[in-house]
Design a binder for these strands. Sequence first.
RNA 1: CGCGGGGUGGAGCAGUCUGGCAGCUCGCGUGGCUCAUAACCACGAGGUCCCGGGUUCAAAUCCCGGCCCCGCAACCA
Length: 478
Amino acid sequence: MDKNKFYITTTLAYVNADPHIGFAREIVQADVLARFHRSIGDEVFFNTGTDEHGLKIFRKAQELEIDVQKYCDEKAENFKKLKGMLNLTFDSFIRTTDEHHVKAAQEFWKICDKKGDIYKKLYKVKYCVGCELEKTESELVDGKCPLHPNMEIEIISEENYFFRFSRYQEKLLKLYEENPNFVLPKKRMNEIRSFVEMGLEDFSISRLKNKMPWGVPVPGDDEQVMYVWFDALVDYVSTLGWPGDTEKFEKFWPGYQLCGKDNLRQQAAMWQAMLMSAGLPNSKQVFVNGFITSKGEKMSKSLGNVINPQDMVVKFGVDGTRYLLLSSGTFGEDSDLNWEGMVEKYNADLANGLGNLLSRVIKLSEKIDAGIAPKARPLESKGLAFGDFGEFFGKLELSQSLEYIWKIIQDNNKYIEENKPWELTHNHPEKFQKIMEKLLNDLSSISQLLESFMPETSEKIKKALETKQAIALFPRIK
RNA sequence: CGCGGGGUGGAGCAGUCUGGCAGCUCGCGUGGCUCAUAACCACGAGGUCCCGGGUUCAAAUCCCGGCCCCGCAACCA
């Protein structure tokens, strides 16, 4: 891990829907890493943004009968709002319709083209006249459209540009071999490696403009626009000012990327091959999240079980939401979120755990005004095995970092029980003071450890320790 | 033989890579405490680790075979 510079980016959110909870988790994870690295003195660049091109978006806007750019503008605002809603600290919010990005994508294309990695070829499209739609192989049942089984699928030929993905098989395998942790968790690394080992096919990177005009124009060809993936991936470098502003780019690239498991191929293989083609360094590492299910089912509008981040914030507050998003499940595995479970966890960990510990300690400290000023032990000298804690960050095992903090909370509750400080106030004031010192110092440390995860809560704890004013951090929820 | 994930006390999960008394949270039961947000602490009940073979002194973990569930089309990370 770079000592002084830290660049972290989420994937770009596709604007054909409102902010999804999976994306919310991803961006909160990125925020925690960004805050953490700032706290240890690194220079940080934290990127996120929106992916706005492509057929789906074009159609959606048509459906709503509004201008496509206007549609994107409105949707992008919804995503920008996450900043305040979830208390995020991203430095850059890039939109793939930004003029600078469009230019960067075109420049990227030109470089790959010069390298000989882009060529034109006839592309056979399977078309169902019944649906008036192109169909992929996986959509067909016995070679026919399941919705129109008595109609023949038509084969239409169209000329598209292709990227010579196949040329990068060896290089990608070498990249993986030299960086065994290039993708985390390990099983995703294995998955992408075996995918590449099976052989790569060149993929199409353009569309005919007269069928789908909503894309970045292909340089030197008026009839084609870029396929959305090709331009979207370039955002990771265009956001750093590439190709014009080399200063920021040189400083921060390569960086760390977060994505969901459905994005593995694009981020860990396609994008890496594109970087190789353009002669740019590969990403540093790709963290791949699992999906969030709800009661074991995929969240979907049709099932009506979608949990959106805004509703969570209303119910649990900003930090409550951040905590719930970060603490559920194991990094890389699918995890489950549902309202009952979340209320339970909120009450157990935040209200009864952290919140209650703070109030009992503050109340105890009122018994004798011993004038104790809790010392915020600096992270590095903390006697709390900080090494383990920091290591979890490197592996994105943030739920484990949190468990580590909650272990301290539990220990403190135990400590209070064992020492019964409330019995000591009259006859053993010195003993009482010693005990309170330990409790107040530990809380101070907890507030520090929590800083990246729950910034407001961390601040509130600090303040409560200074003013000795008891506050209900997290009121119980029924 | 398309690709991948999963099956561990009532619920949700960790542990599997690198074999060594089966662990965590919630819930449940009993007791304790009264500083605290009806919070906290202790103890306890509850498990054929999907099934069948194999390797081994030893298997949830490694090997072989099988069963079942869920993704890979749409909203979506």
